[in-house]
C-alpha cells in the first residue's frame, strides 16, 4: 500500500530532519510512528501527504508516487475551520469535488451518526469540546471515503478519558472500514494500542530506530492484556535507550 524508501529531508541546506527513512505499511494495516519531540514526525507525514517536496528517496502509494491532495490528513493543530459549522467542515472534502448536495447528505449523515455528532451539525468548532472537535476531524476525513488516512497526534490535547474513548472509537472505525492509517503520536500506550506496526524514530535527524510488530493492536481487550504491557515496556526501553544500536 505505502512504501517509503531512503527518504532524506532538510528544510535548510545541511540541517537534516530525516535521514534515510524506509518503511512500508500493508493495505488495511495501521502503523504508529513514535519519536522524541521535534524529531521530524510531522515532516514525515507532510512528505507522505505531498505537502512538502521530496528531496531524496521516494514514497509510493499503491505503486505510484504521492501527489498532494490525494491523502487526507488530520493535522496536529488547527484542524477544523472555525468559520465552518460541523456539517460544513465534514462536507468540505466532498464540496471541493463538486459533489451534488444530495450525495453529500447521503454520505455525511451516517458518518455524523456513527461518530455521535448528529446533534451538533450546526455548531461551530468553538462551541465544541476538544473531544468533539477531534471527532469532527475524523468524520471529515472519513467522508472522503479514503483508503489511507494520515494523523498527526490527533488526541494529544485531550484528557486521558476522552483520549482512550477516541482511541477505541478509531480502532472500531478502522475495523469497520478497513482503512490503512498512519498515526503519529508521542504516547507509548497510544502507539501500542493503535499500531499493528510501531515505528520508533530517533532524535533529529530522525532515523528508524526500531520497527515493532504488534499484531494484537486495535482489539478492545488488548489494552488490559499482558502483551500490551510487554510491548509498551519494550517501546519505552527503545525510546529512552542511549545506545540505540544495541536495541535495534
Amino acid at each position: 500500500m505505502i512504501q517509503v524508501n531512503n527518504l532524506t529531508f532538510a528544510y535548510l541546506e545541511g540541517v537534516e530532519v530525516l535521514r534515510d527513512v524506509s518503511f512500508s505499511v500493508k493495505k488495511g494495516e495501521s502503523c504508529a510512528i513514535i519519536g522524541p519531540s521535534g524529531c521530524g514526525k510531522t515532516t514525515l507525514l507532510y512528505l507522505i501527504a505531498g505537502l512538502l517536496p521530496i528531496q531524496s528517496g521516494e514514497i509510493r502509494v499503491n505503486g505510484t508516487a504521492t501527489t498532494r491532495g490525494n491523502i487526507p490528513m488530520i493535522l496536529q493543530d488547527y484542524g477544523l475551520f472555525p468559520w465552518k459549522t460541523v456539517w460544513e467542515n465534514v462536507a468540505i472534502g466532498l464540496t471541493l469535488k463538486h459533489t451534488p448536495q444530495r450525495e453529500i447528505r447521503k454520505k455525511v449523515v451516517p458518518i455524523l451518526e456513527e461518530l455521535g455528532l448528529s446533534p451538533f451539525t450546526s455548531f461551530y468548532p468553538s462551541q465544541l469540546s476538544g473531544g468533539q472537535c477531534q471527532r469532527v476531524a475524523i468524520a471529515r476525513v472519513l467522508a472522503m471515503n479514503p483508503s489511507l488516512i494520515l494523523m498527526d497526534e490527533p488526541f494529544s490535547s485531550l484528557d486521558a478519558m476522552t483520549r482512550e474513548h477516541l482511541q477505541t472509537l478509531l480502532s472500531r472505525i478502522w475495523e469497520a472500514h478497513r482503512i490503512t492509517f498512519i498515526i503519529v503520536t508521542h504516547s507509548i500506550e497510544e502507539a501500542t494500542f493503535l499500531g499493528k506496526r510501531v515505528i520508533v524514530l530517533s532524535e533529529r535527524p530522525a532515523k528508524i530506530r526500531a520497527v515493532v510488530e504488534n499484531p494484537n493492536a486495535g482489539d478492545p481487550v488488548f489494552r488490559s492484556s499482558r502483551t500490551f504491557f510487554e510491548i509498551s515496556t519494550k517501546l519505552r526501553k527503545i525510546l529512552f535507550s542511549t545506545n540505540p544500536e544495541a536495541q535495534a
Binding site: A49, G69, F81, R140
Partner: peptide, 11 residues
C-alpha cells in the same frame, strides 16, 4: 495549517 488541511482534502 488551515491551508494545508484544505490541500490534503483536495483543495
Amino acid at each position: 495549517p488551515f491551508m494545508d488541511a484544505l490541500v490534503t482534502l483536495g483543495g
